[in-house]
């Protein structure tokens, strides 16, 4: 059921809003990081599902952003994403420090900016079909995206209790958010969105 999803349980209302996330010295507490870890993994999952971004592209983006010390190889990337408490197995055991979270934010926005055209196209398609009351699955790009997202989510996440509608809504919500993460102020907005969500939960 919906209420059993661990995503609901990770966030506590102890977070604080910060104005400049990447340079602000206020660090979220561990409960916020738990929520942030899940959302960072989901953003990367959306990018992966839409643009087919694999670990190579993520490592390439980390190299372009001079973040090799944090994301040096596939193992490091896997460990970072495995910090998501929604993950199967040892998910959530690793703690994500502020620099690692910042690195994932930068990488995600960098990849979103690289694939801004595709993201925008997907959003515009979504807007178009919304007016026609068509199914997103009927559009190739959106259908592939939703399929990839749903399959990957069900494959990687421990508690696969989300309905298809919930997974669709989550995927579309993440798609729309990716569009706003793809501009110059994307990293700041993603960081603040992570904190906002952690604070709201």
């Amino acid at each position: 059921m919906v209420m059993d999803i661990p995503l609901h349980q990770t966030a506590t209302p102890q977070g604080k809003m910060v104005s400049l996330p990447l340079i602000d010295q206020t660090q979220p507490d561990h409960s916020q990081l738990d929520n942030i870890k899940a959302q960072l993994d989901l953003v990367l999952l959306a990018l992966e599902a839409l643009a087919g971004i694999g670990s190579e592209a993520v490592l390439q983006a980390a190299a372009e952003l001079n973040l090799q010390e944090v994301v040096s190889d596939r193992v490091a990337l896997w460990r970072l994403r495995q910090s998501n408490p929604l993950r199967r197995g040892t998910g959530g055991r690793k703690k994500l420090d502020i620099e690692e979270a910042r690195s994932l934010v930068m990488i995600s926005c960098h990849l979103a900016q690289q694939h801004q055209g595709m993201i925008r196209e997907a959003v515009e398609l979504l807007e178009a079909i919304a007016q026609t009351h068509c199914q997103p699955y009927q559009v190739a790009l959106l259908g592939d995206y939703l399929d990839n997202f749903t399959n990957t989510y069900q494959e990687r996440m421990a508690e696969d209790t989300l309905s298809m509608d919930a997974l669709t809504d989550l995927a579309l919500k993440l798609l729309i958010d990716l569009l706003f993460y793809s501009n110059s102020q994307g990293p700041r907005r993603l960081w603040m969105a992570l904190l906002d969500r952690a604070n709201h939960a």
Binding site: V2, H8, A11, L170, K173, D177, F180, M192, D196, R197
Partner: peptide, 22 residues
């Protein structure tokens, strides 16, 4: 506009996706 966009992005996934049954 910036404030509004940030509010949209900061909307909780829990609320937007799972909060209210459709």
């Amino acid at each position: 506009v910036s404030h509004y966009v940030q509010n949209v992005l900061g909307q909780s996934l829990t609320t937007s996706v799972f909060g209210v049954p459709w």
